[in-house]
Measured scan of single mutants.
Amino acid sequence: MSIQHFRVALIPFFAAFCLPVFAHPETLVKVKDAEDQLGARVGYIELDLNSGKILESFRPEERFPMMSTFKVLLCGAVLSRVDAGQEQLGRRIHYSQNDLVEYSPVTEKHLTDGMTVRELCSAAITMSDNTAANLLLTTIGGPKELTAFLHNMGDHVTRLDRWEPELNEAIPNDERDTTMPAAMATTLRKLLTGELLTLASRQQLIDWMEADKVAGPLLRSALPAGWFIADKSGAGERGSRGIIAALGPDGKPSRIVVIYTTGSQATMDERNRQIAEIGASLIKHW
């Protein structure tokens, strides 16, 4: 067993022997301040990774656009098919120029040779490549099948209805392509620590998230040296922004954090800054 596999296998073990965790309302004060600064709703939840206990939450059962955070769930569904012998990570998928959609920095470079399922998941999570996500959605049967996968996990809230990039439209009061912070946090925890996926697939999923290259201005910008984070960000229309993450000190994750916002007129930089400040408060009061 590799060191990384050992780390993920012992996530519940280490967490069980940690000192009790206590909620700190100071972080919620910052979440509410972010709402004021952005002029928009902000949803927040913080779960203990081992027990699933909610440590703090704000608007945990209000719907927010998922945006690209759905790509972690998508690759979880792909990995479940791999575990069941219905898919192979090494299978190569070929596609054409007509398949390319807006923001496809990886797939646009491989029109000639195609990409493997493993490479597509890596591109979808680490670079948020939209064509990679659409190609992977095709392998599982489309958005409705991802929703069905989530329902089978016990998540009857999260739903995907459309493809990239239309799913980022974020129309107010439109339930399409949305989740709730509580539902997303619980589902992410199941994917990373539950028995739904094999140990190898859980490790692969967290490795992809740990290698995320496009979430630097968010929670990662607030992390002290030595902290662990595996995350996936999302951005959408109407001032929408979000991030889902597993993080913790001492090089291992111990909490799940989900943050979503929508309806702001603020710039992307300002949305990023507010999420980073929430992260800084979380870490300060850990």
Rank of each mutant, 00 (worst) to 15 (best):
Met1Thr: 01
Gln4Cys: 10
His5Thr: 12
Arg7Phe: 09
Arg7Gln: 14
Arg7Trp: 08
Ala9Arg: 08
Leu10Gln: 06
Leu10Arg: 05
Leu10Glu: 04
Leu10Cys: 11
Leu10Asp: 03
Ile11Gly: 08
Pro12Met: 14
Pro12Ser: 12
Pro12Trp: 12
Phe13Gly: 07
Phe14Ile: 13
Phe14Asp: 00
Phe14Thr: 10
Phe14Trp: 07
Ala15Val: 14
Ala15Arg: 01
Cys18Val: 07
Leu19His: 14
Leu19Trp: 15
Leu19Glu: 07
Pro20Ile: 02
Pro20Val: 03
His24Glu: 12
Glu26Arg: 08
Val29Trp: 15
Val31Asn: 02
Lys32Asp: 05
Lys32Ile: 11
Lys32Leu: 12
Asp33Val: 15
Asp33Thr: 15
Asp33Cys: 14
Asp36Trp: 15
Gln37Ser: 14
Arg41Tyr: 11
Val42Gly: 01
Val42Glu: 00
Leu47Asn: 03
Leu47Gln: 07
Asp48Glu: 12
Asp48Cys: 07
Leu49Glu: 04
Asn50Ser: 13
Ser51Arg: 07
Gly52Asp: 08
Gly52Ala: 07
Lys53Trp: 09
Arg59Thr: 02
Arg59Met: 04
Pro60Leu: 10
Glu61Phe: 10
Glu61Ile: 09
Glu62Gln: 08
Glu62Tyr: 08
Pro65Gln: 03
Phe70Asp: 01
Phe70Ala: 10
Val72Cys: 07
Cys75Gly: 09
Val78Tyr: 03
Val78Ala: 06
Leu79Tyr: 02
Ser80Arg: 11
Arg81Leu: 09
Val82Tyr: 07
Asp83Ala: 05
Asp83Glu: 10
Ala84Asn: 15
Gly85Arg: 10
Gly85Ala: 09
Gln86Arg: 12
Gln86Met: 11
Glu87Gly: 05
Gln88Ile: 11
Gly90Ile: 11
Arg91Tyr: 06
Arg91Glu: 06
Arg92Lys: 12
Arg92Val: 14
Ile93Phe: 06
Ile93Cys: 06
His94Tyr: 15
Tyr95Gly: 03
Asn98Asp: 11
Asp99Ser: 10
Leu100Lys: 04
Glu102Asp: 15
Ser104Asn: 05
Pro105Ala: 05
Val106Ser: 08
His110Lys: 13
Leu111Gln: 09
Leu111Arg: 08
Thr112Ser: 13
Thr112Lys: 15
Asp113Ile: 08
Asp113Arg: 10
Gly114Thr: 04
Met115Phe: 04
Val117Pro: 04
Leu120Asp: 00
Ser122Glu: 15
Ala124Gln: 02
Ala124Gly: 07
Ala124Lys: 00
Ile125Glu: 01
Ile125Val: 11
Thr126Arg: 07
Thr126Lys: 07
Met127Ala: 08
Met127Gly: 06
Met127Ser: 08
Ser128Asn: 00
Asn130Asp: 05
Asn130Val: 01
Thr131His: 04
Thr131Ile: 01
Leu136Val: 08
Leu136Met: 07
Thr138Ile: 11
Thr138Tyr: 13
Ile140Gln: 06
Ile140Cys: 06
Gly141Ser: 07
Gly141His: 07
Pro143Met: 04
Pro143Ser: 06
Pro143Gln: 06
Lys144Leu: 13
Glu145Trp: 09
Glu145Asn: 15
Leu146Cys: 05
Ala148Gly: 14
Phe149His: 08
Leu150Asp: 01
His151Ile: 10
Asn152Pro: 04
Met153Ile: 14
Gly154Ile: 02
Gly154Asp: 09
Gly154Tyr: 05
His156Ser: 11
His156Cys: 14
Thr158Tyr: 01
Thr158Ala: 05
Arg159Glu: 06
Leu160Phe: 10
Leu160Glu: 02
Arg162Phe: 03
Trp163Arg: 10
Glu166Gly: 11
Glu166Lys: 13
Leu167Thr: 08
Glu169His: 11
Ala170Ile: 09
Pro172Thr: 12
Asn173Ala: 14
Asn173Ser: 13
Asp174Lys: 03
Glu175Trp: 13
Arg176Gln: 14
Asp177Pro: 01
Thr178Asp: 02
Thr178Ser: 12
Thr178Leu: 02
Thr179Lys: 00
Thr179Phe: 00
Met180Trp: 11
Met180Gly: 11
Ala183Tyr: 09
Ala183Trp: 08
Met184Thr: 03
Met184Phe: 09
Ala185Gly: 13
Thr186Gln: 13
Thr187Asp: 11
Thr187Ala: 09
Leu188Ser: 06
Leu188Trp: 04
Leu188Thr: 09
Arg189Asp: 08
Lys190Trp: 09
Leu192Trp: 08
Thr193Tyr: 15
Thr193Leu: 11
Thr198Met: 10
Thr198Phe: 07
Leu199Thr: 10
Ala200Asp: 15
Ala200Arg: 14
Ser201His: 13
Arg202Glu: 10
Arg202Gln: 15
Gln204Phe: 07
Gln204Arg: 10
Leu205Ile: 09
Leu205Thr: 03
Leu205Glu: 02
Ile206Tyr: 15
Asp207Pro: 02
Asp207Lys: 12
Asp207Ser: 15
Asp207Cys: 10
Met209Asn: 00
Met209Ser: 02
Glu210Arg: 10
Ala211Cys: 15
Ala211Phe: 09
Ala211Trp: 08
Asp212Pro: 05
Asp212Phe: 02
Lys213Gly: 08
Val214Ala: 08
Val214Leu: 07
Gly216Thr: 09
Pro217Cys: 07
Pro217Gly: 09
Arg220Trp: 02
Ser221Glu: 10
Ala222Ser: 14
Ala222Gly: 11
Leu223Asp: 01
Pro224Trp: 03
Pro224Arg: 06
Pro224Val: 03
Trp227Ile: 02
Phe228Gly: 05
Phe228Leu: 06
Ile229Glu: 02
Ala230Tyr: 03
Ala230Gly: 12
Ala230Arg: 01
Lys232Asn: 01
Ser233Tyr: 01
Gly234Asn: 01
Ala235Asp: 02
Gly236Val: 02
Glu237Thr: 11
Glu237Leu: 13
Glu237Phe: 09
Glu237Tyr: 12
Arg238Thr: 09
Arg238Gly: 11
Arg238Leu: 10
Ser240Gly: 12
Arg241Phe: 02
Gly242Ser: 07
Gly242Cys: 06
Ile243Asn: 02
Ile243Trp: 04
Ile244Gln: 01
Ile244Gly: 02
Ala245Arg: 00
Ala246Val: 13
Ala246Gly: 06
Gly248Asp: 02
Gly248Asn: 03
Gly248Trp: 02
Gly248Ser: 03
Asp250Leu: 12
Lys252Met: 13
Lys252Val: 14
Arg255Asn: 02
Arg255Met: 05
Arg255Val: 06
Val257Ile: 10
Val258Arg: 00
Tyr260Glu: 00
Tyr260Asn: 01
Thr261Gly: 03
Thr261Trp: 04
Gly263Trp: 04
Gly263Ser: 07
Ser264Glu: 04
Ser264Phe: 04
Ala266Gly: 13
Glu270Arg: 11
Arg271Cys: 09
Arg271Gly: 08
Arg271Pro: 05
Asn272Cys: 04
Asn272Trp: 01
Ile275Gln: 01
Ala276His: 14
Ala276Ile: 07
Ala276Arg: 13
Gly279Glu: 02
Ala280Phe: 10
Ser281Tyr: 15
Leu282Met: 14
Leu282Lys: 02
Ile283Val: 12
Ile283Glu: 04
Trp286Phe: 06
